[in-house]
């Protein structure tokens, strides 16, 4: 009667082990990827805030498909002007209303939470950028 325990138990242990290694790797990938962020040609100050709060998801190799679809900074210069203007407005609005970064992400990455000063800077930048495009 002991055998069934092995039949179920051993594959189960292998599965658990494999899955935890998989999870471990995944979180390693993530912490590596935070170091490699695309340079966007934005002011250094803004790039820093985006690196810290946005680019884990909103780049071509970001971790969320939905996020990429909404806004992909890797392809920023391929957006049409009108889409850029719409996105710039959304960036300031979503950060200002603290909809972004998502609460769940902030819980896992407490340092990603932008402070009021950073949000103000981003919004000033989005307005300037918009003005430039409209000229």
């Amino acid at each position: 009667m002991k055998r069934p325990i092995y039949i179920i138990g051993i594959p189960f242990l292998i599965f658990v082990l494999g899955f935890s290694i998989h999870l471990g790797n995944r979180s390693n990938d993530r912490s590596d990827s935070t170091d490699i962020k695309p340079a966007l040609g934005f002011p250094e100050e803004i790039q820093k805030i985006l690196n810290n709060s946005c680019l884990d998801c909103h780049t071509a190799d970001g971790m969320s498909e939905d996020a990429k679809e909404e806004l992909n900074f890797t392809d920023w210069y391929e957006y049409e002007d009108s889409e850029k203007i719409s996105l710039l407005e959304d960036i300031c609005e979503e950060m200002g209303e603290r909809e972004m970064p998502p609460r769940k992400y902030i819980n896992n990455h407490p340092d990603s939470k932008p402070d009021d000063e950073q949000i103000k800077k981003v919004c000033e930048w989005t307005k300037e950028e918009t003005k430039k495009i409209m000229e």
Partner: peptide, 11 residues
């Protein structure tokens, strides 16, 4: 504003 309109038209 004009840019606000552009953004809304896109949306």
């Amino acid at each position: 504003t004009k840019s606000g309109q552009v953004s809304l038209l896109f949306d």
